[in-house]
């Protein structure tokens, strides 16, 4: 079975935010909720890198471990999904996630945070595949249609890759070799690179 993962190639990411926009549009995500975000480190300095971050679909997900109501489940493809009907909006998954993937629609004091929303790897949720309830709650289910997540499909530089981990690591390995990268220079070596 496939083990689905995201991989963002920091050398290629140009911070265009197409992945963010595609995700938000495709799943009709409300104001204030952002399943995917692009983070730029060392902005303006030498060595500036950008990364597109959403749920990393961890094999041993901290969110799943900490949830008081146990709403998370992992599909046979390794995609971590959750059941919004059971969610109590406590926010613990947001504290536990190293990447800050869980998002909540409400932010008032004493209020419930609302139902947690996060990247689903475009695989919907526990409702029936491609039903209208699934779309209302979780967004499009592209995996059930045999497609890959839209953020990776839309990435303008193919920095963001999504798919089976073996396939992804193979692609990236070839890129690294083509760049002429070495243990002493992880970046693009313009002398050695076969571009």
């Amino acid at each position: 079975m496939a083990r689905m993962k995201f991989y963002c190639d920091a050398e290629r990411c140009i911070e265009c935010n197409a992945c963010v926009t595609a995700c938000k549009n495709e799943h009709d995500i409300p104001w204030g909720v952002n399943r995917r975000r692009v983070v730029t480190i060392k902005d303006g300095e030498q060595g500036e890198r950008s990364l597109s971050v959403a749920c990393m679909h961890c094999s041993d997900a901290p969110c799943a471990a900490v949830c008081p109501v146990d709403i998370f489940y992992t599909t046979s493809d390794g995609i971590v999904l959750h059941d919004k009907d059971l969610c109590i909006g406590c926010g613990y998954c947001f504290y536990a996630c190293p990447f800050g993937a869980p998002q909540f629609p409400e932010e008032a004091a004493f209020s419930s945070r609302g139902k947690m929303d996060k990247c689903t790897f475009c695989a919907g949720g526990p409702e029936d595949d491609n039903s209208s309830e699934e779309y209302k709650k979780y967004g499009r289910n592209r995996i059930a249609e045999g497609k890959l997540p839209l953020c990776a499909e839309m990435c303008s530089t193919h920095a963001l890759l999504a798919g089976d981990a073996d396939v992804l690591s193979d692609i990236y390995r070839k890129r690294v070799i083509n760049r002429g990268a070495s243990a002493f220079d992880w970046g693009v070596n313009f002398d050695k690179a076969k571009l």
């Binding site: 009907d85 969610c87 109590i88 909006g89 419930s112």
Partner: peptide
């Protein structure tokens, strides 16, 4: 009423 505040279940 307080219990039902999440307006989910």
């Amino acid at each position: 009423g307080c219990f039902a505040l999440l307006e989910g279940a």
